[in-house]
């Protein structure tokens, strides 16, 4: 249950540091990027370009996408030199 006006701190203060992590912005997305790991060469270009830091990398390897924050801008799909990333409609993927 979200807080009512009587319970919120006054003056629009946000009193919890790092609370933006709780604000999932991935639901803005209408298309989601899907990585084909058979084609991926782990060049990390998608990781460099992603404006929302939503490409998971572990030990210099791409491991997946953080869909909580990925907004579906498709820059990764556009920049991928191996066409390993495709965009899929959120409606169809449901």
């Amino acid at each position: 249950m979200k807080k009512g006006w009587k319970e919120l701190p006054i003056g629009t203060q946000i009193i919890k540091p790092g609370s933006s992590e709780d604000f999932k912005t991935g639901d803005w997305r209408i298309e989601k990027p899907i990585i084909d790991f058979d084609k991926c060469i782990h060049c990390l270009i998608c990781w460099i370009y992603c404006p929302d830091s939503s490409i998971y990398v572990n030990d210099n390897k791409v491991t997946g996408i953080n869909y909580d924050f990925c907004k579906g801008c498709a820059i990764c799909a556009e920049e991928c030199p191996k066409d390993a990333i495709t965009m899929q409609s959120e409606v169809e993927s449901e």
Partner: peptide
Amino acid sequence: NPITLGGLDLQDYFFEHKRQEIE
């Protein structure tokens, strides 16, 4: 006790903050 001020305050909370101001 760090705080953020003047954050983006959209449909979810703006009205509550204005209601406080009215009060």
